[in-house]
Amino acid sequence: MAKGLYGIMLYEFKRDLRKKTLILVIVFTFLPVLVAAILKAVGAQVEDERLWALIMGLDIGSSIAGGAVASLGLAGWAWLVAVLYGGDLLASDLREGGLRLIAIRPLGRKGYVMGKLIALTAFLVIVFALAGVAAGVSATIVGGWQKGVWLAPILGALIGLGSVPTALIASLFGGLTRNAVTGFILGAAASLLTGVVIGLSLSIIIIKNPLSLEAWRKYYELNIIVSGAIPITAGPTLPAILYYLIEFDNKFIPLPLPLVENPEVAASLVEVSLTPLEVLPLYIASTAIGALALAYLNYRLALKIEV
């Protein structure tokens, strides 16, 4: 069993390594570094000590330049990498005839799915951990000494782990439709729309008066909780929660308000009363349960597929 599983994992790892998506990870890692370097060169103020976290998309920054770097951060793109890898996890073997060659081996379909899921998870963890190392090194070169940079590979690995539920949703769609492209599209749609729907629904329900700071505080707090309860939004945010817990003494950074007509409110930042430690168990449980449930659904699908 162990040898067979190792064989499938090797096969999947090779497939992942040969995909062009890997180039995207490299681009997403170095694009914010490049932007930060350019901004610094033109004299913009970037949070130098926390540059690694901005590059990784864990910190939202407190300056406009920092915010710009953070908006390009790696964590913000993890969903795309996840759907590109997940979308053809099953679909490619259906298309290329790999499944019928593998499923008849002693390990069977159960081992096939297990091996593939373990390999994909390990691959995402390793790739994002390496991206974290690259972000840490680059940030040190561009911004000098970095506070808490030792966390970069660990939180990078966590970005990879947190994107597993998104990858598994894309894989499910890809397997169901036997088409990797449909897997990418539906996986991406599920990932993006979930965040939008949460934000929009909560804003309609809670923000009756856009000028009320209290309403915005409540909105942000509920957004943190609801996002934490849904695996595909909880997973990618989990590293940021841990970052604030460790680097910001268990406090969320004050959140900026969207531009509204009242300049006083527009200039304000909202401090949420929730602490990262309070929501961390929810995010961990949601990501873990979601990943396991989606892995099970992928497994059930792989058992049912006829080739």
């Binding site: 040898k3 067979g4 064989g7 090797l10 090779k14 593998i102 002693p106």
Partner: peptide, 13 residues
């Protein structure tokens, strides 16, 4: 590679 992976999946070293 294909044959080696399949052989490992069959339990070979």
């Amino acid at each position: 590679e294909l044959l080696e992976y399949l052989a490992v999946m069959e339990g070979m070293s």
